[in-house]
């Protein structure tokens, strides 16, 4: 599945200049459309858009460690929660603007990832062991946050509403959060694009493919994986901050649930691991599936059932992901 990543794909079929131009045009059109879209939709529509770009940005940040670095992390929700708690806590108890909290969250998440990564990568945790190890970290964090009253305990931290607040308090109409998540998504897409063409991304691809060969080429595998891990953690934190502001609270049960942990992985895998557009496409598709099926809502839980079935069918039909499918199709048409 990693053969579908950006680095490998560009390797085997470099995009022709005309196709590249098409891509740029498409991207501009997409951004323009995205900016205008909320004006054309009602409240429910805006909520859907928020959902799409929330998952797109969240999964994009996971894509860095899971897709580009090829390490299946199940602890990503932890860094998301760190961002959320950092801003909620500093706002509630210190009266600081969530922007400060956001920066703090990024810092703490980065440090936590550096510490955790230094341990797990040094001890050479790979594959399933890495997944379970990061999951363990996430669970431990969930229980700790839920039982230490300093962090609000199991009730979490509510974020008090401040009507007439200046923009620095990050409290908006839903449409405001849409633009924030959209901005994050675009920023992360840019970041991933840069990774794909940089020495960092290259060496990550090598480490992912064969760590022994990577070492003979002067690459220190655990250092590279650590950097990817820290980067992905630091990009997860802002998503947490903004999401906390959107739902006006933060608590361990929702932010660190097993389900949140697992869900962040899916848009990237479905859309295309290690690709710039994968997470966005995956998030869009999955949100649409849930939306369409909840229209037919027979009973509560039906859309979840449909979502589950989609997850079973998808990897069988499109193992490499949506974006690689599109990309290969266009490449073949071009020949």
């Amino acid at each position: 599945m990693y053969s579908a990543s950006d680095v490998s794909a560009a390797s085997v079929a470099p995009p022709a200049p005309r196709r590249r131009a098409l891509l740029v045009i498409g991207l501009v059109a997409f951004v323009a459309g995205a900016v205008v879209a909320p004006q054309l939709l009602d409240r429910h529509g805006v909520a859907i858009l928020v959902s799409i770009f929330f998952w797109a940005s969240f999964s994009s940040s996971w894509n860095i460690i899971g897709g580009y670095a090829g390490q299946f992390s199940l602890g990503h929700a932890a860094f998301f929660a760190v961002g959320a708690y950092a801003s909620a806590w500093t706002y509630r108890y210190l009266g600081l603007s969530p922007l400060v909290g956001l920066a703090l969250g990024v810092l703490v998440a980065g440090l936590a990832a550096a510490a955790l990564g230094a341990i797990v990568f040094r001890y050479k945790l790979l594959g399933t062991y890495f997944a379970i190890g990061t999951l363990a970290f996430s669970e431990i964090l969930r229980v700790t946050l839920g039982n230490v009253s300093w962090f609000g305990g199991s009730g979490g931290i509510p974020i008090p509403l401040a009507p007439e607040a200046p923009w620095t308090l990050l409290q908006f109409q839903p449409v405001g959060y849409y633009y924030l998540f959209l901005a994050l998504t675009l920023a992360y897409m840019l970041l991933c694009w840069w990774i794909g063409r940089s020495r960092f991304g290259f060496q990550l691809a090598v480490v992912r493919d064969n760590e022994d060969v990577a070492e003979t080429l002067g690459v220190r595998p655990e250092s590279l994986k650590l950097r990817a891990f820290v980067l992905s953690a630091m990009t997860a934190a802002p998503v947490g901050t903004i999401y906390a502001q959107y739902v006006m609270f933060v608590e361990p049960q929702t932010f660190l649930s097993f389900s949140m942990v697992i869900q962040v992985v899916i848009p990237a895998v479905i859309g295309g691991l290690g690709t710039v557009f994968g997470p966005v496409l995956g998030a869009a598709l999955l949100t649409l599936v849930i939306e369409l099926t909840s229209e037919l809502a027979v009973r509560p839980g039906f859309s979840l059932f449909a979502y589950g079935c989609a997850l079973m069918v998808f990897p069988l039909l499109v193992p490499s992901g949506i974006w690689p499918l599109i990309r290969d199709f266009v490449a073949r048409r071009g020949r």
């Binding site: 490998s8 390797s11 085997v12 020495r199 691809a205 493919d209 064969n210 060969v213 080429l217 002067g218």
Partner: peptide
């Protein structure tokens, strides 16, 4: 031989070149 199978020849060799330089162009 352990080639980096999913990359092309040029990129395989670039992977080696990156050992001494950080610039994609130089590599």
């Amino acid at each position: 031989p352990e080639p980096l199978g999913r990359l092309n020849v040029l990129d395989n060799v670039k992977a080696g070149a990156f050992a001494t330089t950080a610039s994609a162009r130089e590599a």
